[in-house]
């Protein structure tokens, strides 16, 4: 089971980057980046996963019973928050790009070069 999770993580990273490289629309590009980003969620959660273990909340299970790693879950949550900020900023820039350039195609946004 876990091998599948790692393969999925790598695949998400690569397919997300591929989508971003070939993107013709800035919103599509931002969504592709979130796809690539979700690879890190899958990776982190897979790292902390244990077969047959409970959620790491010891209120209703005896202390010492096997649980999944809570640290990676905390990392994933933090990561979600960080990335939400980045996506918000990128989408705000996309709105501005539409206003100033009249397009959201990266091919049409070519003020800077050389």
């Amino acid at each position: 089971m876990t091998a599948v999770a790692y393969v999925v993580a790598v695949w998400l990273l690569l397919i997300g980057l591929y989508g971003a490289v070939t993107s013709r629309h800035l919103v599509h590009l931002v969504v592709c980046l979130t796809v690539a980003q979700s690879s890190t969620y899958v990776l982190l959660l897979a790292v902390g996963y244990r077969d047959g273990a409970d959620a790491p909340i010891f209120a209703d299970i005896p202390v010492g019973s096997p649980v999944v790693d809570p640290i990676v879950q905390a990392l994933t949550l933090t990561d979600v928050v960080v990335e939400a900020t980045v996506v918000a900023l990128l989408l705000a820039l996309t709105v501005q790009a539409r206003k100033r350039f009249g397009t959201v195609d990266p091919d049409g946004i070519r003020e800077l070069h050389g």
């Binding site: 993580a9 971003a20 890190t40 990676v72 350039f101």
Partner: peptide, 27 residues
């Protein structure tokens, strides 16, 4: 706008690589 977009997108992709590496190391 263009400069900031290029900056943000490229560096965000870089930070995915960084975080992926951190995840592997933690594992």
């Amino acid at each position: 706008i263009e400069g900031s977009l290029n900056f943000a997108v490229t560096n965000t992709a870089g930070s995915f690589l960084l975080l992926f590496g951190i995840g592997l190391l933690y594992g």
